[in-house]
Design a protein around this nucleic acid. Sequence first.
DNA 1: AAGTAAATAGTAATGAGAACTATTATTATA
DNA 2: TATAATAATAGTTCTCATTACTATTTACTT
Lengths: 151, 151
Amino acid sequence: MRTIIIVEEMNKIKKTKQREAILEILKNTKSHPTADEVYQKVRQKIPRISKGTVYRNLKLLTENKEVMKIDTGGTEGRYDARVENHYHFRCESCGKVFDVDVPVDTELDKKVSQKTGFNITHHVLEFRGFCSDCQKKAIISPSGDKNKEEV
Amino acid sequence: MRTIIIVEEMNKIKKTKQREAILEILKNTKSHPTADEVYQKVRQKIPRISKGTVYRNLKLLTENKEVMKIDTGGTEGRYDARVENHYHFRCESCGKVFDVDVPVDTELDKKVSQKTGFNITHHVLEFRGFCSDCQKKAIISPSGDKNKEEV
DNA sequence: AAGTAAATAGTAATGAGAACTATTATTATA
DNA sequence: TATAATAATAGTTCTCATTACTATTTACTT
Ligand SMILES: [Mn+2]
Ligand SMILES: [Mn+2]
Ligand SMILES: [Zn+2]
Ligand SMILES: [Zn+2]
């Protein structure tokens, strides 16, 4: 009787056109789309793709670090093919998310690690406010008008 | 016929023991509880309180800036009676959230505002990694054991 | 070409949170 | 204090993002 040690019993990941299409879409957009937005886009190429497939592959791609999930700001996750750590800005009016290209402060992680004793792997930084478009659109309503009433 | 101008037709907020109990709980904890955790806690004082009441009041208190909602890190919102901006650390193993007391970099907001043209009101910063407890608990499994197999 | 295991489409289930509604509690007023 | 007005509650249903399930299809191995 021979003894065989199987060193690695790895799950083999098969290449599919669905997953490739999803990755391609994320590589070609800067808008940080939600799962549903990715779904709408990929349907143009693969009309019979199911939403479950989109979710499953977004998760897989995230686990494999081929894309990153932005989990800040409420309910919907957003996806980003730019996988190295970087910062974002989220408009509190329209909800759009933009890249903010200032250097990532890795020293801060070390500093806080020292101070707190936590093992810090990274940090997530999101700026909030109003984007250029929403600033333009903002209409200052005449003071009090809404709640004035004649009796 | 007299003309009366009602300058302000304000929604009057009534004081309730439910809302006061919720606020009290948040003021007396540092653990950044979820809505459900607040619900479990407040039931000890008001057993017949409903979950909807907890959600509604957490929203109201957040709108009134008496508490703040932490909306980073996935699905569940967490609540914090410390309302001035400050940073957090989230353990990626147990999910606990801790305060990180380093000064908030408001200059960064100005800098990014200038650079991008966004009207930035604030930023949200969350450190990620493993808390002290989870570092201790971590057991390094003998290399490959899990996937070794005898045939 | 045949065998296998992973991935898919389609559908059902889950779970956080919001909406709805009849009843109750709080505040204003006579 | 009694009465009236209306905000808030309890309990329930609904919504919506995401995951789980399952029979069928597809990709890779031999
Ligand atoms: Mn990005
Ligand atoms: Mn805090
Ligand atoms: Zn905007
Ligand atoms: Zn932990």
